[in-house]
Design a protein around this nucleic acid. Structure first.
Lengths: 159, 159
DNA sequence: ATATTTTAAGACAAAAGAGTCTCAATAACC
DNA sequence: GGTTATTGAGACTCTTTTGTCTTAAAATAT
């Protein structure tokens, strides 16, 4: 598995927030409902992201989470590093400690090249880019539906 | 983590066998000693690889494990598929089931491209290729040493 | 002040991955 | 046959990841 489940959930939630990036806080409960992720688990993940300064949180009524980006683009890499750390991009493919150009394993060169492909993708892809693409083409962020289902806010208030 | 620890150990052991590919069986105990991998754990991993027909085993004195390749090159992909399965190369980066060209997530296209880089590397790199490179340049397959330490067979027989 | 809505923090449980141990089966050698 | 060297198979333990639950803290509204 390339990314941990926590990281994948973190990415999905980040994309969700990027589609609603209007300064309002989104409650975690709403995100966990829409994205079908355990509320408490998502809470812990988002705590990591707010600790890293990628998001901002606010307690109480009308509170929740929002992106904290001051207009700057957020590359996927930021989320991955905050949750999974740099392991994926630094570690030897054969698990040998201290493997590098100086003292490489037989796979080092090829893996370094492949890894650069991953790094590039994560660095050059941004949340807004994907969020816009997702909204334009009505792609999905959940098991079932398109981006549109993320927006009908009142389905869960039957009264 | 890209590959599981089992898979990484499997790759290291496969490379070790590729350096000694003269038809003789290598005891697992020797491999686990040289590669600094738990004997029983390595045994289980090698059992998977022999079950897949990638290796052959033989019990009793002078028994052990050897590559079963009939002269054919073994791409790293074979080992990875046998141990970790195809997950890495088929799964959605955002963990959405059934994500594909028909019903993609916003990241699908970019991830598919990146993933092809990984696939290509694993398919085009072979055990013999890496084993030869390792022997020529005395690279390492262990924490400490170069390929050369894999060959002095008598250090562990002090009498 | 009290009740309500929300995040924060941490204990706890379940599942998966990693690693250990024991015993059985097979083959060789004496 | 009996002993030894080896793989095979399965139970078992330990650790990490994933997921749940409970309580506290903060902010708002009445």
């Amino acid at each position: 598995m390339l990314l941990s489940k926590s990281c994948v959930y973190g990415l999905r939630a980040s994309l969700f927030l990027a589609t609603r990036d209007n300064g309002e806080y989104v409650p975690i409960r709403k995100m966990s409902d829409k994205l079908e992720i355990s509320f408490h688990f998502l809470t812990k993940i988002l705590q990591q992201l707010t600790a890293e300064g990628i998001m901002e949180s606010f307690k109480g009524p009308n509170g929740g989470i929002r992106l904290n980006r001051n207009g700057a683009e957020v590359p996927l890499m930021d989320i991955v590093l905050a949750i999974d750390g740099s392991q994926l991009l630094t570690e030897c493919a054969l698990g040998l400690p201290g493997c590098g150009t100086k003292n490489p394993c037989p796979l080092h060169d090829k893996w370094a090249e492949t890894r650069d492909g991953i790094r590039e993708m994560l660095e050059e892809t941004t949340l807004t880019e994907l969020a816009e693409k997702g909204m334009e083409e009505n792609l999905r962020l959940t098991t079932d539906g398109g981006f549109d289902i993320l927006f009908n806010d009142h389905e869960d208030e039957p009264k």
